[in-house]
Design a protein around this nucleic acid. Structure first.
Length: 518
RNA sequence: CGGGGCGUAGCGUAGCCCGGUAUCGCGCCUGCUUUGGGAGCAGGAGGUCGCCGGUUCGAAUCCGGCCGCCCCGACCA
């Protein structure tokens, strides 16, 4: 089928070279190679769409599970609203149309006939959801409504990147309706905090939270808050958003309720979402020149066991031993009902070293090597994907050679030891990512000239004063490609907050964080 | 939509200027020897050279048209 000829990834020097393009050499080529070769995703026959492969989807499933538990714990329930939305719905909220009309995919035909009214494939579901809420709400007693849905959405983007920006992507969108503005604001901020904790604790990806400026907020929202992460090329990735929608959609869809005092009032709404884009963030936060590194909590496979044998007799013995170790780990109850997720690489005809490289590329946090000598001593060799020592670093090695980063662990009590190491990896990854972000954040007094040089060079996050004028924001974007990522929440602000606007020298209205962004 | 580049095996490519049905590497399959950091040797499978048309005895190669993809500029989780 000639139509499939464009499926070739646009990547140079991939197959004839076992090594990845390095991050320093070409960060975006590196990213594409990691995503493809770690088998997270592949290109689809349709431009801008992607297939999420089992290893990528496995990460998504773990993200879903952790988030879904949190949504449920905070009183939300899942529902599902349809993919197709009447085009007229999109038009009912002025800012919303403006924001999404250009990137809407529209269905004009069905059943072989032209439709009376075109249907839009949801770019987001505010319109259909609040129109339904309007049917379900009569009284303040019906509020709040706390709904979440896991769904796919379509936005006809011009330039696409695997996971970061595709025409179709998977996400979760929460939609709530409340009696008061303040209650909606509390919900918006609660979810923002929930996202932040998820990104730190599960993704090991530090984020700063804050308020979006008017030009960067969601079309149709009163206020948008976001989580912003720093990738290894020092660009910002907006990893999650939480919106206080005010009464904009309530008014558009007549979502009214009778209040305690008997009058009719419009409900106050929030919406919030995170998407498969987070997987791209994970790759660009933790990956190295050997490939992917997945934090244990999100890794579909936490431990890979590579048995080593020479003869057939040894092979049988080692495979049995490997499976016994796997059994001990998967059935371990030390962290509740979920055992440790283990894979035994029993493939023949591939040397152990080749397997090591492959599992490192694919990001498995911990590798366990099991050979005849280990069996003899009732132990195994363990290596951390993040390259850190297991236990304290050896003080010195004779001959000045680099000390081995593998450690010998006894097979007795192995699950506990492995679990401890996984926990350490998880926290070390967060600490490393946090240190990297801080090392590339600039809180020193900054002139606009210095800022421009910085944005032409290494980039990073720049904390600076802003007079609050959208025209200045636009000018900086025009001149440097950097945008205001957010007006940071209190805990992220500088101790000595800038008092003047970086560009005009006028009194600063806010301290803001500037960066180039994905 | 403007500017640039490219479509040859699963992937990366040579050949194209100077027409004679296709090169090499990686991967894949089989066998033997290997297996504690990317194995070696031998054999093998796999391509209507993006599509349509033209020139020609003959087109991957020359000519025309079309399609698609990638990169750079105006939008975005």
């Amino acid at each position: 089928m000639p139509a499939l000829c464009h499926l070739k990834p646009a990547i140079s020097r991939m197959s004839d070279d076992k090594k990845l393009t390095s991050r320093a050499e070409d960060f975006s080529a590196w990213y594409n190679e990691v995503v493809l070769r770690a088998q997270l995703a592949d290109y689809s026959p349709v431009r801008g769409c992607m297939v999420i492969r089992p290893d990528g989807y496995g990460i998504w499933e773990r993200m879903q599970r952790a988030l879904d538990d949190q949504f449920k714990a905070t009183g939300h329930r899942n529902a599902y609203f349809p993919l197709l939305i009447p085009e007229s719905f999109l038009r009912k909220e002025a800012e919303h149309v403006e924001g999404f009309a250009p990137e809407a995919a529209v269905v004009t035909h069905g059943g072989g006939k032209k439709l009376d009214e075109p249907l839009v494939i949801r770019p987001t579901s505010e319109t259909i959801i609040y129109s339904m809420f309007a049917k379900w709400v009569q009284s303040y007693r019906d509020l709040p409504i706390l709904i979440n849905q896991w769904a796919n959405v379509v936005r006809w983007e011009m330039r696409t990147r695997l996971f970061l920006r595709t025409l179709e992507f998977l996400w979760q969108e929460g939609h709530t309706a409340h009696v008061t503005h303040d209650e909606a604001e509390v919900e918006t901020l609660m979810i923002l905090g929930l996202y932040r904790r998820f990104m730190e604790e599960h993704m090991a990806m530090p984020v700063l939270t804050g308020l979006k400026t008017h030009s960067e907020k969601f079309a149709g929202a009163l206020r948008t808050y976001s989580c912003e992460a720093m990738m290894q090329d020092n660009k910002a990735l907006q990893a999650g958003t939480s919106h206080n929608l005010g009464q904009n959609f309530s008014r558009a869809f007549e979502l009214q309720f009778q209040s305690e005092s008997g009058g009719m009032e419009f409900a106050w709404n929030t919406s919030w979402g995170v998407s498969t884009r987070m997987i791209g963030g994970l790759v660009m936060t933790h990956g190295d020149d050997n490939g992917l590194r997945i934090p244990p909590k999100l890794a579909p496979t936490e431990v890979v066991i590579v048995p080593i044998w020479k003869s057939d007799e040894e092979r049988a013995r080692l495979l049995e031993a490997a499976n016994n170790v796997k059994q001990a780990l998967t059935s371990w109850t030390g962290r509740g009902h979920d055992g440790i997720r283990v894979h035994v690489d029993a493939r023949e005809g591939i040397k152990p070293g080749a397997k090591y490289y492959e599992w490192e590329l694919r990001g498995v946090p911990l590798r366990l090597e099991l050979g005849p000598r280990d069996l003899q001593s009732n132990s195994c060799m363990v290596a951390r994907r993040d390259g850190n020592f297991i236990g304290p670093a050896p003080a010195e090695v004779p001959g000045g050679k680099a000390p081995s980063r593998k450690a010998v662990l006894s097979l007795d009590g192995l699950p506990t030891a492995i679990n401890d190491i996984l926990t350490t990896i998880q926290s070390d990854m967060l600490a490393a990512a946090l240190a990297r972000r801080e090392a590339n954040s600039h809180r020193e007094p900054m002139t606009y000239d210095t800022f421009r040089e910085l944005m032409e060079g290494d980039g990073g996050f720049v904390y600076a004063g802003w007079n609050g004028d959208p025209a200045i924001e636009a000018k900086v974007k025009e001149e440097t490609k950097a945008t205001i990522r957010c007006i940071p929440d209190a805990e992220f602000r500088s101790k000595d907050a800038p008092t003047t606007c970086m560009v005009t020298g006028e009194p600063a209205k806010h301290e803001v964080v500037w960066a180039k962004a994905y």
